[in-house]
């Protein structure tokens, strides 16, 4: 888990995403306990209220749940929930920004598709040109 203190994104949201990443990667498995908010706040030197806020975002979304007196657990089906949520925002977060950056560099949509299909699309083009 990495938190970037210079990022525009509030720390609690970064923390929530970092926990989600760990669930997706299988580091935190479903129906198992995750590290406590105290451990998180100590490790990253963040106020426990901030850490709690990040964890609560995931509790509200049903990704984590509290077991009284024991701690935080990953819900059954959490991975699927995260996948669905991330797939829904994939176009906006990745595709749109990819297209914007490409437009700045005058890379065409065709070139992008070539890159996706066969590695570095631009180099391929220049190779063809020199032949």
């Amino acid at each position: 888990m990495l938190i970037d203190f210079n990022s525009e994104k509030p720390i609690y949201l970064q923390l929530a995403e970092a926990i989600e990443d760990n669930i997706l990667k299988g580091i935190f498995e479903e129906e198992t306990q995750i590290v406590s908010t105290t451990e998180i706040s100590v490790k990253y030197k963040i106020n426990p209220a901030t850490a709690g806020k990040g964890v609560n975002v995931l509790v509200d979304e049903g990704i984590l749940y509290k077991k009284r007196g024991l701690g935080m657990f990953v819900s059954a089906g959490a991975k699927e929930k995260i996948l669905e949520k991330r797939r829904n925002s994939f176009y906006k977060e990745y595709v749109q920004s990819l297209l914007e950056e490409a437009a700045k560099l005058s890379i065409s949509k065709e070139d992008i598709i070539k890159m996706i299909v066969g590695g570095n699309g631009i180099e391929d083009n220049s190779d063809k040109g020199s032949k």
Binding site: F5, I11, T37, T38, S41, V42, K43, Y44, K45, I46, N47, P48, T50
Partner: peptide, 28 residues
Amino acid sequence: YKELISNYSESPKTIIISTHLIEEVASI
């Protein structure tokens, strides 16, 4: 800073830190 947070988490208390090292305590 880590000990302070862990101490505070274990037994919550009111803490006032007066400091010139602002960025260091900004997240705490």
